Amino acid sequence: ITGDVSAANKDAIRKQMDAAASKGDVETYRKLKAKLKGIR
């Protein structure tokens, strides 16, 4: 179950990262990237 949750989280975070990148929001992008590392 835990694996599914983190996989879903990663997917959601990647989508947020894409949105931040397209807006040029480097700050948010970095925060999300750090979150991704924390999940692993």
Rank of each mutant, 00 (worst) to 15 (best):
D18H: 13
A34K: 10
I1T: 09
K35I: 15
D18Y: 15
T2A: 09
T28I: 04
D25T: 00
K15W: 04
G24Q: 04
T2F: 10
D18I: 15
A21L: 15
R40Y: 15
I1N: 10
S6I: 12
N9R: 13
D25S: 00
A34T: 05
K33L: 15
I39H: 07
K10D: 11
R30L: 14
Y29A: 02
D11T: 05
D4Q: 10
I39D: 06
N9Y: 15
K33G: 04
K10L: 14
A12K: 06
K31D: 05
A21H: 07
T2M: 09
I39N: 06
K37G: 06
K35Q: 13
A19P: 02
A20D: 00
K31A: 06
A34D: 12
G24I: 03
S22Y: 05
K33W: 09
A7V: 10
L36G: 01
S6H: 09
A8E: 10
S6P: 08
D11H: 07
D25H: 01
K35M: 15
L32F: 03
V5L: 12
G3Q: 12
L36E: 02
K37I: 08
Q16M: 12
T28P: 00
K37L: 12
K37V: 09
I39Y: 07
A20E: 02
S6G: 09
D4S: 13
T28E: 13
V26Y: 15
D25W: 03
S22K: 14
S22T: 06
A12W: 13
R30F: 07
K15F: 05
V5Y: 09
D18L: 15
D4I: 08
K15Y: 05
K35N: 03
S6R: 08
K15A: 12
V26R: 03
A12N: 07
D25V: 00
T28W: 04
K33E: 14
K15H: 05
K23L: 07
K10F: 14
T2N: 12
I1M: 11
T2K: 12
D25P: 00
Q16H: 04
D11S: 09
A8N: 10
D11Y: 03
V5G: 12
R40Q: 15
G3A: 10
K15D: 05
K35A: 12
K33T: 03
A34H: 07
R30M: 13
Q16K: 06
G3T: 09
K23G: 04
A12H: 10
G24L: 04
K35Y: 14
V5N: 12
M17F: 01
K23M: 11
A7F: 11
R40L: 15
K33N: 05
A12I: 08
K10C: 15
I1G: 11
R14A: 04
A12E: 14
L32Y: 03
D25Y: 00
M17R: 00
S22D: 06
L36P: 00
K31Y: 05
V5P: 11
V5S: 12
I1A: 10
S22W: 05
T28Q: 06
G38Q: 13
A7R: 10
R30G: 02
A7Q: 11
D25Q: 01
I39W: 07
E27Q: 05
K10A: 15
Y29M: 05
R30K: 10
D25G: 00
Q16N: 03
G38E: 14
T2D: 13
N9S: 12
A7T: 10
A34W: 04
Y29E: 03
R14D: 03
R40N: 14
K33I: 07
K31I: 06
A34V: 07
A8W: 10
M17P: 00
Q16E: 10
L36T: 02
A19N: 05
A7H: 11
A12Q: 11
A12F: 08
N9P: 06
R14G: 03
D18Q: 14
Q16D: 06
G3K: 11
T2L: 10
K33C: 14
G3R: 06
A34S: 06
S22I: 10
A21F: 14
D4F: 08
K33M: 13
R14N: 04
I39T: 05
G38R: 12
G38T: 10
E27H: 05
T2P: 13
N9G: 09
T2R: 10
